[in-house]
Amino acid sequence: MRKKTIMLLASIFLLYVIVSNGEGIHISSLELLATGFNYTTEKMHFYNYLLNIATMIIYISTMESAVSSRFRLRNYITTRGGHTTLVSCLVKTAVQHIFVILLIKQIVYFLFFLISSSFTPFYLFDMISTLLTLSVLGLMQIIIKLQGISEKISLFLLLSITVIAQLMSYQYPVFSAIVIASAGWQDMQLTMLVIKSIAIAVMIYIVHFISKSGKLMEVVEE
């Protein structure tokens, strides 16, 4: 876990360092990478967009691999504590990894703050939005898994949704609700956070419904 976290920190830090902002290592990189947008030309910055997708691949695959490895123990967990225990183990694992990602972001923010001696108002939104967006994605992963869908398909599905939503969000701001941040996040930050919170509530209800239905392992084993 420690080795994996260090690797994760190194790769995320590297992505923030190589993002294009015209000022070298600067705290504005954090916003540019998270949005993949060019505020000067008011257009998508393709290079930053690709780096943004790379960070999402890292976040999603980190959670997917953690949840999947727990899920492999499903027979052992379920016979010890029932379906609810299995679901709560998966949720706990996803939450643990979301907090690892948040911690890494904190470290990156701190390092960039030290280097550039300036701060960004994007910080708070980024933290809350990362927490909520990754929670939605983590819960989606769990629901997909409980339906017996394979790890590869789950990964492909979530990555496709994120890649497309990020791209569409520059044209249609409503898609920003699916990603961590996009252009014009300042104008609709509250709306986006509310939408994400509602999505989490819906996902929690679905997960709860599946775990209480008693049919969980049948779907998985078919």
């Binding site: 490895s69 727990r70 492999r72 123990l73 027979n75 052992y76 016979t79 010890r80």
Partner: peptide, 16 residues
């Protein structure tokens, strides 16, 4: 009852 099961291929968290 409490159960101890070993069903199908042994599955564990491989990196642990």
């Amino acid at each position: 009852y409490t159960y101890g099961v070993m069903i199908e291929n042994p599955s564990f968290i491989e990196h642990e």
